[in-house]
Write a protein that binds this DNA or RNA. Structure first.
Lengths: 345, 345
DNA sequence: CTGTTAGCGCTTTCAG
DNA sequence: CTGAAAGCGCTAACAG
């Protein structure tokens, strides 16, 4: 278990000083070509590896960024992270991942923890709709040292950049499409509307109804968890109504799937009796054989890339006025069988 | 843009020395309760946060581990990573993720890069079947400072721990199941068998055939990429054979899906004409409505957890003899419609 | 062209 | 119970 070799080791071996070795390794032109080559060679020979930790301590830059998400094993979040990693690694950054499982205290803790390890920035999709009441988060806001970029589940906080898709448009387009299919009684599976993304999808839905002369019916909006089981539960409620809806716009693909299962098992046909639209373009929505699910693509890979770029701009900004950016990507409605009543000519 | 407060700042303010403050913060009993409380209070008041980077440099432990995977946006890998993060975070570790996209040079580079940032260990699923020829990897092996744990795509290298599933059994069980369904001509969509996992699935397949008196037919084994398109391509080849197979065991769920699509579009029925079994239990395999795909569950979450545990054992091992563990998890065949010819009583 | 020195923030002997 | 001093590995003035 030999120790790692440091610049002191190679300095000693060469009768030089650590400073010279450091400069030589960094190809400083002040150092003669001879010694530079000599140092480089012996460094190689001694299996020298730069200790970036020392560098980080010295320079105050760790070249690490933290990414906080509710969970990593969903296609949406892992795609975002993929985008972040691909964008940041070439610039010398490593990506530390943290999951919150939607628990506020864990989110709080992980923010703190990331700050402690001196990350150069934090990119996060929030789990806590009342983030401002979170102690760790507030400290982060206050010292303003660490750039923060929200993606997807953001909060509208002054001085903080964000990358989202236009959820209002997503909700609007989805609903408009259902109206175009002739649906009149469109239910909406919403989610906690304390989160902007869910509120905006809901608002888009409402606006589309209103723009098309359909009266808003509150009983058709049900808060639903983003999973298959809860989709089933809610679909049951809708089917049991005196006048069941003729369409469902779900803010989650998983809930949409559950709804589809429940609807089919109850003997109804999709899309003939009930049209369904989801949200996220999760891979499985495409693979359904009978009823490929209409959904809204959020371009997670691009979202991740963009969030990374916004972070890079912030760290490289040397001016004293902080620039904050709020990038809004455009979602895309992907029309598939679950909502396509009449084949288009 | 005020600087972060250090123990010196609070020492100065209190007329103490940094050492005392350090000890007080660590609740060292040698420090009087009074000063301890005093220090703790002012630390809080001054928004003090420990700089773990300095600690890491001092102690030689970064409490970071690197995880290297081909890509993160597949359910299998992101589930493994989820398991790793959940297991390691409570022990104080952060997880740095790196993707290789199956490129050897990138894998090489990222290994080096992780070593440079002084990770305490590397957990990886290899991308390069000839890893031993990889310079960065060899350096890693030689200095033996950094614990290394393989998961899933491992190499059988002395002194390196690994966590895998029993791929042989997975292949065997899948094939045996097809034989039980009465299939006689079972094709196998394999993948690069320089990787142990694919070789073992293949060997399991062969063994099951031989154990059941079916002659091995090399023309029924085709190397296939793990994606939908290549699954289609290969299915086409099989369907065009003089005597097409009556079953397909694919070492990838994605290729299985492609095959199913091609088979159906060619007018054949699944499972009546051709039975199909995949591998991985990707979420979509369950959601297929007409032909939920029979597949083999690899328990990625548990695999990640276990890999993390093996790492923890290695770092906490103070003895001078390195203990290496090769954990083999048991896969589970999940029988679904795509291979179930006759309903079981 | 190279050496000296100091310091990044923290812990930890060794004294007192 | 607390202080002084050294050191983790590296870089960056400042000298010469």
């Amino acid at each position: 278990m030999k120790k790692k070799t440091t610049i002191y080791d190679i300095a000693e071996k060469l009768g030089l000083t650590a400073a010279t070795v450091s400069r030589a390794l960094n190809n400083n032109t002040k150092i003669s070509l001879n010694t530079r080559k000599l140092v480089l060679d012996t460094a190689l020979e001694m299996n020298y590896e730069q200790n970036k930790l020392a560098l980080a301590l010295k320079s105050g830059k760790s070249y690490n960024v933290g990414v906080i998400v509710p969970r990593i094993d969903s296609n949406f979040f892992s795609s975002v992270i993929r985008g972040i990693e691909e964008e940041l690694y070439p610039k010398g950054y490593h990506v530390i991942i943290c999951q919150t499982h939607n628990q506020e205290n864990i989110e709080n803790e992980k923010i703190n923890s990331l700050v402690n390890v001196q990350v150069d920035g934090i990119l996060m999709s929030i789990s806590n709709a009342n983030l401002e009441e979170n102690k760790g988060f507030n400290k982060l806001l206050k010292n303003k040292k660490t750039p923060l970029v929200f993606f997807d589940r953001k909060k509208d906080i002054k001085g903080i950049s964000s990358v989202t898709i236009d959820d209002f448009k997503g909700g609007y387009d989805a609903t408009k499409h259902l109206l175009d299919q002739g649906c009149k009684r469109i239910a909406h599976l919403s989610n906690d509307r304390n989160f902007e993304i869910f509120r905006n999808r809901y608002l888009g839905y409402k606006q589309a109804l209103s723009d098309n002369g359909i009266e808003f019916d509150e009983s058709l909006v049900i808060e639903t968890q983003s999973n298959v089981l809860d989709g089933r539960r809610v679909a049951r409620l809708l089917l049991d109504m005196e006048t069941p809806p003729d369409a469902i716009f779900s803010s989650s693909d998983f809930a949409a799937l559950g709804a589809i299962q429940e609807i089919k098992e109850s003997g109804f046909n999709i899309p003939e009796d009930i049209c369904v639209v989801g949200f996220s373009n999760e891979p499985f929505t495409r693979f359904m054989e009978l009823t490929a699910i209409t959904t809204v693509d959020q371009f997670p890979l691009e979202m991740g890339r963009t969030a990374a770029q916004v972070f890079l701009e912030e760290v490289s900004n040397t001016g004293d006025t902080k620039i904050t950016k709020n990038v809004v990507l455009t979602p895309q409605l992907i029309i598939r069988k679950s909502s396509l009543k009449h084949k288009e000519g």
